[in-house]
Design a protein around this nucleic acid. Structure first.
Lengths: 205, 205
DNA sequence: AACGCTGCTGGGCAGGTGCACAGCAGCGGC
DNA sequence: GCCGCTGCTGTGCACCTGCCCAGCAGCGTT
């Protein structure tokens, strides 16, 4: 499965310079969109020579993939940590309600539309993240009254969708109804998961 | 408010050739992403000379704006028509559940992130569409039991988000949980709005 | 017959792009 | 002292980009 050998010599994957390039590419992607991520501009943004981009990455798509993977892995790890230290409904909601990364998601969704290697990676990550979320949500809902409640996976998709829309619209400057929607979700959580702010924080068995 | 005069001579706004260019640009946008919408490629896709793009549009952004407006206006008109001939909850849901235009939305969301004239247009349209949807939703909910129901605008944002996520993921090939989510929404609608398939379709006052 | 308007086009410019290739300096191992 | 490896760079190529400009052919007015 090793990438079939190419004549071109490539830099070490754990290079510090390489990491700087990836970071610069990510900044550019977020601030100016994927079309702005060119070898010249990435180089300039990192304070390095443009050729280094091609020294560390066979193609620009490889760069995009690396940018995506880094952020995706970090996100997944952060999620696992959130779950590990509690993982209440409130925690899960706050995690998906963070609007950091909404722009990121849009850019990659757009990229994925027409570059198949990227699409595959995005799809793969989306599945992994969904599975982790679903497990955490099931655990968090465990013990609450299941009466008349939609299936967890449906809840997940709706909440995911809601936070995406809120984030995108906020970027656009459109915020009508946002506070009502947020208030509704939070109220719902409060009902399902009586706050642990008074008394023992331990979960009742 | 007239665009301040430029030396350059531009083609008639109602030209048939112009319309062909807009249509070709839209196709390209959907199939290959906004980065593929260049004067050369639009010209080729329309079977016309590339210079015609600059003859009919002062800048490429103007082309993008025209593509967006055309689709946005058409969408709005189609929505009004849907509302006019019924506008039940089921109709509204089906309208937003159409995945046609999800890719379109993504591309323009990405474009809007870093081109302000486009952002303004997208924001403006988003507000108009939201207002129309909200009014229609309020009408459709009128008469149903408001007990324990979230505010209409919250419902709207959640459903909008849900359908966006479903559409994006479908493009990616990720469909886990989709059928459950759709089933849930449809069941909810069925409960609120007993089907008119038997007997009189008139709304009870 | 002269004129102006309109749709369209050939040619071109300055700039940006991905990527390749040959080579250099510094390094550790022999 | 030589060798091979590594990080890096100067140069360059073929190609694409937005946009401009001068001009042409056909047209309806006058």
């Amino acid at each position: 499965m090793a990438t079939l050998p190419s004549s071109r010599r490539l830099g070490a994957p754990d290079s510090k310079t390489r990491a700087r390039l990836v970071a610069a590419a990510e900044r550019l992607l977020l601030e100016e969109g994927y079309a702005a991520v060119t070898s010249r501009r990435v180089g300039a943004a990192a304070g390095l020579k443009p050729q280094l981009v091609h020294y560390y990455f066979r193609t620009m798509d490889d760069l995009f993939l690396e940018v995506f993977r880094r952020r995706a892995e970090e996100n997944l790890a952060r999620f696992e940590r959130t779950v590990a230290k509690g993982g209440s409904l409130r925690d899960l909601w706050q995690f998906s309600a963070e609007l950091r990364g909404a722009r990121f998601n849009i850019e990659f969704a757009a990229l994925a539309n027409h570059r198949k290697t990227i699409r595959a990676e995005v799809a793969h990550y989306a599945e992994r993240f969904r599975a982790a979320q679903l497990e955490a949500l099931r655990d968090a809902l465990d013990g609450t009254d299941p009466h008349g409640r939609p299936p967890p996976v449906a809840v997940l998709l709706m909440v995911t969708g809601l936070s995406q829309v809120l984030a995108i619209e906020e970027e656009l400057g459109v915020t009508a109804g946002h506070s009502e929607a947020v208030a509704f979700v939070e109220e719902l959580i409060a009902r399902l998961e009586p706050t642990a702010s008074r008394g023992d924080p331990g979960p009742p068995v």
